[in-house]
Design a protein around this nucleic acid. Structure first.
Length: 267
DNA sequence: GTCCAGGGAATCA
DNA sequence: TGATTCCATGGA
């Protein structure tokens, strides 16, 4: 979830993951990135879309570096960050699961859901499972979801899946909607989707780089850098949101990722 | 045993 | 609107 590194910071020799019906392997060899895998379509196009290869990150980094020295430092620290263009449906469910949860558990839940309701794909003698479609996931009852370890989020996943199944809302209409505020309103109708989750969905699956998801980490780093309040939990979302808009403008989401990664990985 | 994790929904002022 | 409280679960 979120972003991917170029492998210069950490020694990730090779990484294999699944995206929609594709199993992709990424490897760095002598300053070149090699993409391999089983694809449902043209691998070039699929990678171009998924890894956001059309976006000029050098230009973005140049602009954001001029904001202040904090951004400059965080960008140097996470210079290989790219915002993956993730599957909308999977992103919606994944971030509903993320509520008051930790990353290892979130991963485990998504893996179990995929194993039980997705389709198996074998690549290099290893098994991978696609994230279930709306129809596939609709086979799961609230109790089934609870048994996979989703906890109190079981009902939220169930209700949101139902809503898409009954076409009270569609993925297409969300993908089509360009206005960020209208889009947010529509997402907020979904059970388990609040401000933060809605913003994450827009940033990670709908390329809305202007939104600024406010989580505990970003609140922490923003307070530390710009506000310096004793108790960071008392800093209001509106204040943070306005500050981000003022400083980062249409690139607030990108800035959020650099700051988030910097604050979480460093120190 | 206690605390916490990339929050949301319900309830109450 | 804004502030509290509860919500499952598992690892530290």
């Amino acid at each position: 979830m979120g972003s991917v590194l170029d492998g210069t910071k950490k020694k990730i020799g090779s990484y294999t993951g699944i995206f929609k019906k594709n199993v992709l392997n990424v490897k760095k060899e002598n300053e070149k990135i090699i993409f391999k895998g089983i694809c449902d379509g043209d691998i070039k196009e699929i990678c171009r879309e998924y890894f956001d290869l059309e976006t000029d990150y050098e230009k973005i980094k140049e602009r954001l570096s001029k904001v202040d020295d904090y951004l400059k430092t965080s960008i140097e620290y996470g210079k290989g960050i790219r915002i993956l263009n993730q599957d909308l449906w999977e992103t919606i469910i994944s971030f509903i699961i993320s509520a008051n949860n930790n990353i290892p558990r979130i991963k485990g839940i998504i893996e179990r859901i995929s194993q039980k309701y997705g389709k198996k794909i074998v690549y290099n003698e290893k098994e991978y499972y696609t994230f279930p479609t709306i129809e596939e996931l609709s086979k799961a009852s609230v109790q089934d979801l609870r048994e996979l370890g989703t906890g109190f989020r079981d009902k939220r996943i169930y209700e949101t899946t139902r809503k898409f199944l009954e076409k009270e809302i569609t993925l297409e209409e969300l993908e089509k909607e360009q206005n960020v505020d209208t889009l947010r309103e529509k997402l907020l109708e979904l059970s388990g989707v609040g401000q933060k989750v809605a913003d994450c969905i827009m940033l990670f699956a709908l390329k809305k780089y202007s939104v600024f998801p406010i989580d505990v980490w970003v609140r922490r780093v923003m307070n530390e850098l710009y506000i310096k309040e004793e108790d960071e939990t008392k800093v209001s979302k509106t204040l943070l949101s306005n500050l981000a808009k003022e400083k980062y403008q249409d690139l607030a989401g990108l800035a959020q990722q650099y700051l988030f990664y910097w604050k979480r990985e460093a120190s």
